[in-house]
Design a protein around this nucleic acid. Structure first.
Lengths: 224, 224
DNA sequence: ACAAAAGTGTTAAGAATACACCCATGT
DNA sequence: ACATGGGTGTATTCTTAACACTTTTGT
């Protein structure tokens, strides 16, 4: 069976989210090569023999966006797409990963492909079916923050409850009641109040919280 | 970049579940070739260029187990595993699919690999890391039946509430309160009572129900 | 009449929702 | 003193969980 077996092309594509101005942003590059030359796309590339998909994910982030995987607070495999009819070059299989981070600074000048974060509300036209992949990733994220503490990966280590609520609202795409939100999130016991206060504007300073653990934990559903 | 690019081997493995005697069973074959010759394994095979992973899934079920994909009531992609260190032949990538069916009859004599359903409680030693894949599939199934009507795929079209409860108990691995179960499942409005009764033994016949739709629908969490 | 599975309700506790005002600070 | 975001409580409704007896049928 292995005789004259020819494997399909294997690629890895990365959906990297972070919050900028309380809005979800996704990392895109501008393709320098055909197909879809000069179109925007998710960072991606070939996965050769001998490299695991996670290794490829790491390498692609580094080479296409100058981003070290260690800057991500959380990542996981998203889905594997058959690209028949999606990639004009023919059959390929794409393993996609979802990554979450905070305060990631991209040096757009370092590579030819101008990596940059774009708000989900104002995405340019995208190559391949990358728009559908982003939508899928957003749904996954949305359900993930609802039954786990995954939101920590999008927030700074220290934050106020208002910042936490805004992060949830950005991810879920709807507004939440302040009192009920605070009651529920505090009841989960995932947060630790610090003794510090954030004097943000000219008004009453807000208590600063941290997560007990900067690692994924399941919880009762925070938001239904 | 595509010059001297060599793709990893791509394989597809299938986790097919069905209920037999109120217990979850999984379809296994006995490997006729090295590695792991004569060990039990999930049905799987190479995915060549030009074939989508679903096409490969379908072909593998047919050739390795004589099972037509149309016999499955439901299937979905499960996860993609890097097989470095798992397959003694070296690096490969395995896309796995989860399939659910009911009353599937396998003709074990048709192929050399003796496909057969085995209860999860009495699995033989398995090749590769197929045991871990089955565990992962079971977790996915367990959460899936909790927030959707996916259980329909494991039951005959017509069934009693007791059979439905037993199916849930088999998938979730714990027993449920009969009165609360019935209240909740009926409140979801996914079931339709028929006018028929099942006179199973020598005792009081049970009302027969069907699902409104034999297709996946999300629901409020039936079971927490 | 008996054996066995089918079927049915209530209560109590906990969770979710809706909702509006006072507090602390800098200017 | 005022403007602004920070912070808090209660009443109501809905949901969940615990729990045991009567009904129907075939033998």
């Amino acid at each position: 069976m292995k005789h004259n077996y020819i494997a399909p092309v294997l690629t890895v594509d990365a959906v990297i989210f972070q919050l900028i101005n309380n809005e979800l942003n996704v990392l895109l590059i501008k393709r320098s090569q055909a197909p879809f030359k000069n179109n925007y796309a998710l960072p991606g590339g070939y996965n050769p023999e001998g490299e695991t998909t996670i290794e490829a994910f790491s390498r692609i982030l580094q080479t296409k966006a100058g981003l070290s995987m260690s800057k991500l607070q959380l990542f996981e495999q998203l889905y594997t797409f058959d690209t028949v009819g999606r990639d004009p070059r023919g059959h390929a299989v794409s393993v996609t990963y979802l990554g979450l981070g905070r305060g990631i600074e991209i040096d757009s000048t370092k590579t030819t492909e101008k990596p940059k974060f774009y708000p989900l509300s104002k995405l340019p036209r995208l190559a391949f079916d990358h728009r559908a992949i982003i939508n899928y990733a957003q749904e996954r994220l949305s359900s993930k923050v609802s039954y786990s503490n995954a939101i920590y990966a999008l927030l700074p280590k220290e934050f106020t409850l208002t910042q936490l609520q805004q992060a949830y609202e950005a991810v879920l795409g709807r507004s939440l009641d302040k009192r009920n939100f605070r009651k529920r999130v505090l009841a989960l016991k995932l947060l630790k109040p610090t003794v510090k206060y954030l004097a943000d504007g000219a008004y009453r300073p807000a208590r600063i919280y941290t997560f007990h653990k900067q690692a994924l934990q399941s919880s009762k559903t925070l938001i239904d």
